[in-house]
């Protein structure tokens, strides 16, 4: 008797109706074409398997996106647990009387050519892209969401299921690494 039309699923039209939207959603968060494509495909597969659980309360797209969100968190968890390999060298003494102070060799030094830093410049842009690319994946993901997509801290924390102190440690390390990389490739050339 309900007046409200129930939403239905039609997998044959998923690619046409939703794949661009979902790909766009995924690429914004993971920044790699192949990975974003795979996540979209996995979402469709999981969607097919879970069709009987669809209650018709949400639209087809909302339902698919909720699965995709889960996939992105799973992916983030996976890269987050690969410890060691991509860990950034820290810049401060970890203990002893100098705890929390700059390590001598990591302390900031003056940049010789920062005057033109904000001028549109293809070479500089390439240097930055290269440095961002070298970031460990989990750092890159959080750094870009925050810096380029301008997401609220809370939003990123919800999406990746991390705490805000986690997030700031990641941002801090990402920026330290970017700074070291840019120093080597650009500012002190």
């Amino acid at each position: 008797m309900s007046e409200q039309p129930k939403h239905t699923l039609n997998p044959n039209k998923w690619i046409n109706l939703h794949s661009d939207y979902m790909y766009n959603y995924a690429i914004t968060r993971v920044n790699k074409h192949e990975l974003a494509k795979d996540l979209v495909q996995e979402t469709f597969f999981s969607g097919l398997k879970a069709m009987k659980n669809f209650k018709g309360q949400a639209s087809e797209r909302t339902w698919l996106i909720s699965i995709l969100k889960r996939k992105i968190i799973d992916h983030y968890r996976k890269i987050n647990s690969k410890k060691g390999k991509a860990e950034v060298r820290m810049s401060f003494y970890e203990d002893g009387e100098n705890k929390g102070k700059w390590l001598e060799e990591r302390a900031p030094s003056s940049w010789s050519s920062e005057a033109d830093a904000t001028i549109e410049n293809t070479e500089l842009k390439n240097a930055i892209d290269l440095c961002v690319d070298k970031l460990p994946e989990k750092y890159r993901m959080v750094f870009l969401l925050k810096t380029v997509q301008n997401y609220e801290t809370e939003e990123i924390c919800n999406e990746l299921d991390i705490t805000s102190s986690n997030l700031w440690v990641i941002i801090h390390r990402a920026r330290l690494q970017l700074r070291a990389c840019l120093e080597g490739n650009w500012f002190n050339n």
Binding site: S19, D20, Y23, N24, I27, T28, K37, V40, P108, S109, S110, W111, E114, A117, T118, I119, E120, L124, K125, I128, V132, L144, T147, V148, Q149, R175, L178, R179, L182
Partner: peptide, 26 residues
């Protein structure tokens, strides 16, 4: 102090050079 100055430079740099991609399609 130097870190803070350079960090501000980096922020400007990212604002200028790292841009949101427009809609992306398959």
């Amino acid at each position: 102090r130097l870190y803070s100055e350079q960090n501000a430079t980096m922020t400007k740099l990212f604002k200028t050079h790292l841009k949101k991609n427009s809609e992306q399609h398959l």
